[in-house]
Design a protein around this nucleic acid. Structure first.
Lengths: 142, 142
DNA sequence: GTGGAATGTTAGCCAAGGCTACATTTTTGT
DNA sequence: ACAAAAATGTAGCCTTGGCTAACATTCCAC
């Protein structure tokens, strides 16, 4: 048992707390990018939950400063939310590209990357980036 | 957006539901292996939660058929629980060895592997195993 | 400009996974 | 043997993240 017992699990628990937030801001940014605005309904469909659940989750995101909402208006990201969305989506992309470079089939890579992205330290992400590069240049010699 | 929207997230949510169970049975098996028996206190310390939380989690595990308990007695795994523990710990080990082979520093690898192990499909695990083997044999040429 | 569809809100329910405080049982040390 | 300490159990509370049902608002079409 290296490092203090429990510390790792505390980290995992706090990860969980922000996972949903990350998924939401990432989705919101993507939807705004694609469709101009993001409505609750879009998120409900995306996450396959009821619009009520979306509503309350958005409420927590607003409480925590990630989004701005007005009644009956589309959801907008704050600067903080935008920042989190960017980081999150960059991380997601890294993990996805890494899995593909590793040889994981598309469908599995897409699914797994969404679960894995929330649990990668900078160390791990760096190694993934390095691997992607190496694979890219290795293409020549194959 | 390949595959039906939402289906992935449903999967991620149901993953979450079994994550704790996997972590617990894995820890229980390990503690029994090391110390002969596993008490609630051991788990509370391991996961850095109160003994009350452990107690209730164990209750759910018992309800779901993973463990057997008697009041004031150590926790024991059922066959089902043992099986899950074995699978879980094998997966954990694969992910850990993979991260190390990738070049991730020990500490980060240990932490990340605990979060990642729950989100890897068989496809991904297979690719990880293949990579570990290749790295192993590549040692010779370095 | 009114009615219906789409969207948003509120109320109230549930389970999981946290907690503290207090009661009970078991173990341990003298 | 027995008191103190450690472990376990119980009661009751909280937040998150799900849900349905009922109601309110907005928007578009006609």
């Amino acid at each position: 048992m290296p490092t203090s017992p429990g510390s790792r699990h505390r980290r995992i628990r706090s990860d969980h707390a922000t996972e949903l937030a990350e998924d939401y801001v990432e989705a919101i940014a993507e939807i705004i990018d694609q469709q101009g605005v993001c409505r609750g309904t879009d998120l409900a469909e995306r996450f396959a939950v009821s619009h009520v659940t979306v509503n309350r989750t958005i409420g927590r995101l607003e409480r925590d400063g990630y989004v701005k909402t007005e009644p009956y208006a589309p959801v907008e990201l704050t600067a903080k939310g935008q920042r989190l969305a960017n980081e999150s989506s960059a991380r997601h992309e890294t993990v996805l590209q890494f899995l593909l470079a590793l040889g994981v089939p598309q469908t599995s890579a897409a699914i797994d990357s969404e679960g894995i992205e929330h649990h990668c330290s900078e160390d791990t992400l760096n190694c993934m980036r390095k691997f992607i590069e190496q694979q890219g240049s290795a293409q020549h010699n194959t």
